[in-house]
Nucleic acid binder design. Structure first.
Lengths: 150, 150
DNA sequence: CAGTATCCCCCCTGATACTG
DNA sequence: CAGTATCAGGGGGGATACTG
């Protein structure tokens, strides 16, 4: 972000997404937002981020339509930061990152958080890609069809 | 990466993943690798990245077990960079980023690449989260169960 | 609590030149 | 082609102080 080189115009949705949220802090802020964090100070202590950086990131994410501010729910004069619908659309990105981390970045038995179905308390099913007809698809079963850059 | 602050130890798989691939260039390199890019120069021209940066990133990703080098398939003395199984595990992260970009970052009719089923040529199905029993799950139907930091 | 303002360093990143 | 080496800059990012 505030990118020296922008791949926005490359015609690849992956690059364009990264242009918007592809920096270290943004996705962590968004992750916290999904976990119910709403206040400036909550983000700050949760992430250990410098206040100035946090203010900048919060402002950027708001300008990009990923967060929006709302009056504080506790009646104080402060703002709260909540995900917009566009921001909530990033849920699967977070889930995919979580799944990969669980798969490849932990030693067996090492403590970690997990995502569960609120209704049953059971872990959610693994994320999978499918074809139109429901057939499971691996990376080698797909191809990027270019109308611009892939 | 080469992070001043590391959230590796926070017990959150999302943070740990971002610690490994959470910078601008890494995911773009990985995206290219999924698209069949293998050679140093291919990456360089495809991304417009500086050679020094590319060399560093390639080395980092290799050290982290996401890429590995192989002898050039054309018989030259050079190396090729290919995804390991761990690297291929990032497929769904790329797909999720692509889907979000398509959903929220393009004007109607704007040219962009898309992911299709090689066998049928049809676009892949939308990525979705499900419960153990197959019920579709939205972000509000889930909860992060902490055993560490969420 | 929720920021803004300031200072400052370091490293990310690009550009260029050089080597095998 | 596939890198390595070196230089230079800009801004990401932390720390601290200040304000409402």
């Amino acid at each position: 972000m505030v990118k020296r080189v922008s791949l926005w115009d490359a015609g690849c949705p992956v690059a364009r997404s990264l242009d918007v949220i592809g920096d270290w802090w943004s996705l962590l802020i968004i992750r916290d937002a999904f976990d119910g964090v709403r206040r400036f100070n909550e983000f700050q202590t949760s992430l250990g981020i410098a206040k100035g950086m946090l203010a900048t990131r919060l402002r950027d994410l708001t300008q990009r339509g990923i967060l929006e501010t709302a009056p504080a729910s506790d009646g104080t004069a402060y703002r709260e930061y909540v995900l917009t619908e566009k921001g909530r659309g990033l849920f699967l990105v977070i889930v995919a990152l979580r799944q990969w981390g669980e798969d490849h970045l932990y030693r067996p038995g090492e403590a970690r958080s997990s995502l569960v179905d609120t209704e049953t308390g059971a872990p959610v099913a693994r994320l999978e890609l499918h074809a139109e007809n429901g057939r499971p698809l691996g990376w080698s079963d797909t191809r990027v069809q270019k109308s611009g850059n892939g």
